[in-house]
Design a protein around this nucleic acid. Structure first.
Lengths: 246, 246
DNA sequence: TAGTGGTCTAGACCACATT
DNA sequence: ATGTGGTCTAGACCACTAC
């Protein structure tokens, strides 16, 4: 195993295991650690890098969870023979597109307060008729109209949002700036075909395939914060996910 | 915090952190640890259970990753206010349905060896024209025809499968019994509408919405093993996933 | 038999949130 | 000022794999 140019900063607030994990990740992506190569054993790595074995193990574990490394007892730790894609995260379409360097835009079609229907109230854990914020937005990239998004939010999360803010920022960033930390989301992905409304908003023909996404997001304490019911033009959008089994 | 009836078996080969995690999980699901409740601090738990603090931390970490607990530095560890669904795993539709107690059935429509096209060979990391196993199956539950599944597999994984085995077992179980351990999968979910072939096989009308899934599965060493290109009747199938942000 | 990762201990110091 | 979780150490013993 090559020596890996490691410069650990023991003063930095960045944890050692994190620095190690990033260094290993970099070595793998640049090919300094070739695919299929075995790492030296953990005791040797700990000695070489002058950290304890648990610290080495934690760094390695991160990359195992990400699918970059494989560990087998009695055998060793090996670089997986394939490049790995980003793991699934709690993000938004806006963030995804921004991260890809494309420039998304948002049209706010509806932005008002309304009283929660029975279904919405139930999903948000509120009494029927409680006031919630309702949003209807269209997300586009360049000239492509990508998604029609319908959201219901608790007033504490979105009561002070302006329509202007919604046009320039992702919803989750705005929720965070309201002091709410998204933590857990359940989402269900399916398919449907465009009706007249969807066809009109997205500029597709009636009967065109659409990807549907329904989501309930909860904050750190498990309180439901946001419901999303979105449809995407299947021509331009699909959901990618990676799954690791250890 | 209540005392939790813990009976750790220090002789068992089951790791202590795992026994602890299951005990905590059970206490949460039965309500012995109510939602919103704070756990005692880690030092106290370690003392009470007579294990070291790292062992306590590891048990807690498992439940944090699963979204059952939330930890905040300087504050404490708290039970999340919501029941959690199963996390996304590397499983198959067959397993999913079997786990739900429904009885799926499989019709093998095509089962043959063929030479890999350019696209298939590329995804499997093989030279074009290499022999692969091609499958076309229909999955039903009761009288509902749920999915049309097309798979390409490397010969080592599926060369000795019989059509009969395919009718009674899930593909992944068969791959495992061939000595191959599925490890990593990338899948992409989208939408389309039924053409004549899909409509015929699934018993839906032409133009009905379908969920599409394309997947490449790799084994422990990163070698691609299986490609799946499936379509599901959107009326009866959608994909649920849970996402945790820490 | 030798070598690997898997588990576990008993401490220590620190950063952060709360009072 | 106090108490919490976050990080880190330096060992130990074990289970599993390969030879």
């Amino acid at each position: 195993m090559t020596d890996l140019a490691l410069h650990l900063d023991r003063v930095s607030p960045v944890p050692l295991y994190y620095q190690l994990a990033r260094a290993l990740e970099g070595a793998i992506s640049t090919g300094t650690l070739p695919k299929g190569e075995f790492l030296d054993n953990e005791l040797e790595l700990a000695d070489r890098w002058q950290v304890s074995r648990p610290t080495v193990r934690r760094a390695i574990q991160e990359l195992v969870d990400a699918g970059l490394l494989v560990r087998r007892r009695g055998v060793g730790t090996q670089v997986v023979n394939d490049q790995v894609r980003r793991p699934i995260k709690l993000s938004s379409l806006f963030d995804d597109l921004a991260a890809e360097g494309r420039s998304p835009s948002t049209d706010v079609l509806v932005h008002r307060r309304e009283r929660a229907s029975k279904e919405i109230a139930q999903s948000l854990g509120l009494p029927t008729g409680t006031e919630v914020v309702y949003l209807e937005r269209r997300r586009s990239v360049g000239s492509i109209r990508l998604a029609l998004m319908r959201n219901w939010l608790i007033v504490e999360a979105a009561g002070s949002l302006t329509t202007e803010q919604l046009q320039t920022s992702g919803l989750y960033a705005l929720i965070r700036s309201a002091g709410i930390r998204p933590h857990y989301a359940t989402q269900r992905i399916g398919a449907t075909v465009a009706g007249e409304i969807e066809a009109e908003v997205l500029g597709v023909r009636v009967g065109a395939p659409l990807v549907t996404m329904r989501r309930v997001m909860q904050d750190l304490t498990g309180r439901p914060v946001e419901i999303g019911q979105h449809v995407y033009d299947a021509e331009h959008y699909s959901v990618e996910m990676n799954v690791v089994e250890n």
